[in-house]
Design a protein around this nucleic acid. Structure first.
Lengths: 180, 180
DNA sequence: TTTGTTACCGAACATCGTGTTCTCTTTTAT
DNA sequence: ATAAAAGAGAACACGATGTTCGGTAACAAA
């Protein structure tokens, strides 16, 4: 890949992130982005199909980063299941914290749907072993959705209450679910 | 209020609901709505400020209906707290079911944010008494958000799995939370 | 019934953001 | 040195939003 391409792509993504610190995705225009990145309009559209494509690319990079060093992906650990999951959750929160400065601009509105969809997709594996409820037959689908939404919404809440540490958020999360 | 106004407003809202059964909010244009309602463009904009205003009006009507006969709003019942809440939840699900045919078009995408915000606002009172977690100090804010999101996301899941009854959904919900 | 008000129509319009297309220049690889 | 690829810049078409205006029809009160 050409050096220019890498620089341009980085400039666009960087400008996009910078703008997300100021205003939400919905209020950012392509014009804003290319002005901030100092690239031509044509250039933008050779790198990204649409504005939404840029958003999806950013989400992809975020979660590639956040889940890349996920301890639990290879099952080489000797922890109990719960301890393992707790460690992984805390770890993920730590990595998410690095993006905290621009997450508020992305987790709500139209972009929120995209962001949350990416997030939930990546989270599926994390809660695959969630306990089934005892008395009543709750469908596996429901449990899955419940856990994934619980955690994803917790993170969304965190972006509006960023004063808490990853350990605290992790505690809140595990204290309020009986399924892990 | 003029008879014409009532008819026109009803026509627009009705056409909007009809369109939501076919496609999602984001794909519906004002042109679609005024064609389906058979009203002039000007008329639309005298009744609703913007397309989003129409959406908010619809959400308002939905939740006014769904929460209007909420048993628990006047505290005249002698049930235990949990039983009371369970009855109210089931009752709400029954009323939501009446809108099930067009809810899928509204709970996702850009409109999803608006819909969920309305829903969560109305739900706040329902879970005000949710138990605090025992061991650790989980903030009241967190509990509140947790419960409200849990239920709202449960409903969203239901719109994609409408084969379940209100009682079943209610069971799933209460089986997976330790806070009620 | 007349009169004044209000709702509605419809067609045109301005505006804005998106995504495309063109020509021309600069950079890179070989 | 030269061909291929990347970018600049300006113009363009398009679609959707929301507004404006002059004319028509319904309503309500005299």
């Amino acid at each position: 890949m050409d050096r220019r391409q890498r620089k341009t792509r980085a400039a666009i993504l960087g400008a996009f992130i910078g703008l997300l610190k100021e205003k939400s995705y919905g209020k950012i225009t392509v014009q804003d982005i290319i002005d901030a990145a100092d690239v031509g309009r044509t250039t933008f559209y050779t790198h990204f199909e649409t504005k939404d494509d840029l958003l999806r690319s950013l989400c992809g990079e975020i979660f590639e980063h956040v889940f890349s060093h996920d301890l639990g992906k290879e099952k080489t650990h000797d922890f109990s299941e719960e301890h393992d999951t707790r460690a992984r959750v805390t770890h993920i929160l730590y990595h998410l914290q690095e993006h905290m400065d621009y997450l508020p601009g992305i987790v709500s509105g139209e972009s929120g749907e995209v962001f949350m969809a990416f997030f939930k997709e990546h989270l599926k594996g994390l809660f695959a072993h969630a306990r089934e409820a005892e008395g009543c037959a709750v469908p596996r689908d429901y449990i899955q959705n419940h856990m994934v939404c619980d955690f994803a919404e917790t993170v969304r809440w965190w972006t509006r209450n960023a004063r808490y540490t990853p350990e605290e958020i992790s505690s809140f999360f595990f204290e309020t679910t009986p399924l892990l």
